Simulated scan of single mutants.
Amino acid sequence: MRYLVLSDIHGNWPALEAVLQAAPPFDRVLFLGDAVGYYPDGDRVLDWLREVEALCILGNHDAWLLALDQLPLEGVVLEILAWQRARLSEANLRFLASWPWQREVEGTLLVHGSPCDPLEYLDELELAREGFRCTEARLAFHGHTHLAGAFLELSGPRPWVRYQGFAQGGELLLPPTVRALVNPGSVGQPRDRVPGAAFALWEGNRVEFFRVAYPVERVAERLREEGFPEWLYTRLTRGE
């Protein structure tokens, strides 16, 4: 089974379209959370995830959108989520509300943040060491940081952990003695200073990382149409 692994789309439909045009053939979609937030087309993104029967987990933006009635509407992020919630179809709201915080696929863990906490940013070696201790899975996929890469743990009396970035794409092969916490990067808003839409393909012990260019001007047009802040477009041009 070959899986298309996506994370952090954040309502950026042109970026997702580019991924679908560039991706090699795949059998199933795994989505690591944050379908909504930042960019205007959250409903369209959810339509697609629902149509392809993607296996999805909640991200923090997804959870915030569902809990808006319990949150103070302060700041641009929550204002955008409120705008999006008012425009989501009832079918997509129900779909979003059905997502768990984590799930397993073929013994592999899917979580948005860390195996220890779905809202934790897994961006330091010590946090990765804790993450490995919080799961028995040999492989876990996560998102949240918007950084394409993998924390690798070499088993032994004192496990050794290192980080390998894949902002420019690449391939990761997992030998039997290695465990991995893998982030495919963000489809909708990369933060590793490499513009474009990030995604990964997973099959067995092999993960391929990709970064595909797309016309970010289309996103700028959508932002202007809906009155969203200009800085959301600027971030895309800088990969931050």
Rank of each mutant, 00 (worst) to 15 (best):
M1L: 01
R2T: 11
Y3I: 00
L4S: 06
L6M: 02
S7C: 00
D8Y: 11
I9V: 15
H10L: 11
G11R: 04
G11P: 05
N12K: 10
P14I: 11
A15H: 04
E17M: 11
Q21H: 12
A23Q: 08
P25Q: 09
P25N: 05
D27V: 03
D27K: 05
L30E: 02
L30H: 07
L30G: 04
G37T: 09
G42H: 15
L46M: 13
R50C: 12
E51N: 04
V52Q: 04
V52G: 00
E53N: 14
E53I: 02
L55Q: 11
L58K: 00
N60Q: 10
D62G: 11
L68T: 04
P72Y: 01
L73N: 10
E74C: 09
G75K: 07
V76P: 08
V77H: 14
L78N: 08
A82R: 15
W83H: 13
W83E: 05
W83G: 11
Q84R: 11
Q84I: 13
L88Y: 09
L88M: 15
E90H: 10
A91T: 13
L93E: 11
R94Y: 09
L96D: 09
W99F: 15
W101R: 13
E104T: 13
E104L: 14
E104F: 14
L109R: 15
H112F: 13
H112C: 03
P115T: 13
P115F: 12
C116S: 07
D117H: 08
E120F: 07
E120N: 02
Y121D: 02
Y121K: 05
D123Y: 05
E126T: 08
A128C: 08
E130L: 15
T135R: 08
L139I: 03
L139W: 00
L139M: 01
F141Y: 01
A148L: 06
G149Y: 10
A150G: 02
L152D: 03
P157Y: 07
P159H: 04
V161F: 11
V161E: 13
Y163E: 12
G165Y: 09
G165P: 05
A167E: 12
A167Y: 06
Q168W: 11
Q168V: 04
G169M: 07
G169Q: 04
E171L: 12
L172E: 00
L173A: 10
T177Q: 10
V178C: 03
R179G: 07
L181G: 07
V182Q: 02
S186D: 12
V187Y: 00
G188Q: 01
G188L: 01
G188W: 00
Q189A: 01
Q189D: 00
P190F: 14
R191V: 05
R191L: 04
A197N: 06
A198D: 14
A198I: 09
F199T: 02
L201V: 13
R206P: 02
R206H: 03
V207G: 02
R211C: 12
V212Y: 01
A213G: 12
V219I: 14
E221M: 07
L223E: 08
G227T: 14
G227K: 10
G227F: 07
W231Y: 15
L232K: 06
Y233E: 00
L236C: 07
T237Y: 01
T237G: 00
R238G: 03
R238F: 05
E240V: 08
